[in-house]
Amino acid sequence: MNKRDFPFRLYLVTDEAACLGRDFFWVLEQALKGGVDLVQIREKSLSLTDFMDKALRAKAICSQYNVPLIVNDNWQVAKAIQADGLHIGQSDAGIQEAKLLIGPGIPVGLSLETMDDLEDESAKEAWYFGVSPVFRTPTKQDTRSEWGLEGLQRLRSATSIPLVAIGNVKEDNTQSIINAGADAIAVVSGICSAPDPAKAAENFRNQIEKAV
């Protein structure tokens, strides 16, 4: 996959806890049925072996729907399962180091927390930018600030790299986020915790398409 090839609109970030005790893989497949077209698997607490096993099974499900799977913050898992991408944050290894570790075939997405992060020369190598958080969320307290719609607009005018907005993204603010310049929205609990994950994903897709 070419790192500049980014046709995706609805990006699911998985969260086992947000599935509220339901089977993780059932939630994932329902989300795919509803229209998710890119998935990031995020596991902070699993062992390397368990993460790899879970990612392999998730990749097999995603492949049935022709949806790419990105691994969050673990180049070893991404490389071992031949993931479709790797996502790293500002506190992780830099893009150049990640590319050396993972090899040339797997593109790397990068979280941006402030406009200053854009000044890092290696940021230009990103497949996409995760704009984090577009709106502050109570579940993530370690962020420096929130972008807001105006910040997202400034970032859009400063770069041609695809932008994925994450952080308190809801159905009722999706259109404004897309209209402010995001190429895609990233959703966690809005899909994983929904009573009907497929319907929730479909609703998000509908909001995205209304903004276009």
Score class of each variant (00 low, 15 high):
I41D: 14
K140Q: 14
F129T: 00
V71Y: 04
S63W: 05
C19D: 05
L32F: 12
L86N: 03
I185C: 11
S157V: 07
T14F: 02
G190M: 04
G105M: 15
D23V: 02
S157C: 11
F204K: 12
P138I: 13
S145H: 05
V39T: 07
K170R: 08
A198I: 01
T159Q: 02
I106N: 11
D196G: 09
V188K: 01
I95F: 13
A184C: 14
G89K: 04
E97I: 14
K79M: 06
Q40A: 12
A198H: 11
S160P: 00
Q141L: 14
A211I: 07
K33Y: 01
L56M: 15
P162Q: 00
D142I: 09
L69Q: 13
E43N: 11
S160I: 02
F129Q: 01
E209C: 04
N179T: 10
L46N: 12
K44L: 06
E16F: 03
L163C: 01
D50R: 14
T143L: 02
G190D: 09
R9V: 00
I106C: 06
N74D: 14
A31R: 04
D37H: 08
N2T: 05
T143H: 06
M115N: 02
Q82S: 12
E97R: 13
M1E: 04
K79A: 10
A18M: 10
F8I: 01
P138Q: 10
E29S: 05
G181K: 03
Y128N: 03
K99H: 10
A31W: 05
Q64T: 10
L56E: 15
D142C: 06
V108C: 12
T114W: 01
